[in-house]
């Protein structure tokens, strides 16, 4: 379905994850973060950049991988994106929600 985010018409799934990463830009990331109640800082953006880089290389993302990335540790990741950090940060980064096979 389509949703207007930051005045742009964007394709998202039922849960609000972008279905076409090429439609992503920082304004959209910013708007999704606001909906999630997160005020983006440089550190938040560094995490988002990292997630997008991994996604581009087909590397499945896990909390552990982010925690070992050197960008942020697991505790810090929870401080930046409370509750479900990987889910929230993936949504802001415009990449799919981490999923299992079924």
């Amino acid at each position: 379905m389509e949703k207007i985010i930051a005045n742009q018409s964007i394709n998202v799934n039922d849960e609000g994850y972008l279905t076409n990463h090429s439609q992503w830009n920082r304004e959209i990331g910013h708007a999704i973060a606001q909906e999630e109640g997160i005020e983006m800082t440089d550190h938040h953006w560094k995490v988002v950049d990292y997630l997008q880089e991994q996604h581009k290389n087909d590397v499945p993302l896990t909390i552990r991988r982010v925690g070992k990335s050197g960008v942020v540790d697991i505790k810090g990741f929870y401080e930046l994106f409370p509750k479900g950090p990987l889910k929230t940060s993936s949504k802001i980064a415009g990449i799919p929600k981490p999923a299992s096979c079924i």
Binding site: K87, K97, P98, A99, S100, C101
Partner: peptide
């Protein structure tokens, strides 16, 4: 589970 549910894919969630 660390995932968002026992089922994470839309079709499987709906059916199962």
């Amino acid at each position: 589970t660390p995932m968002s549910g026992a089922f994470t894919k839309p079709k499987a969630t709906e059916k199962l």
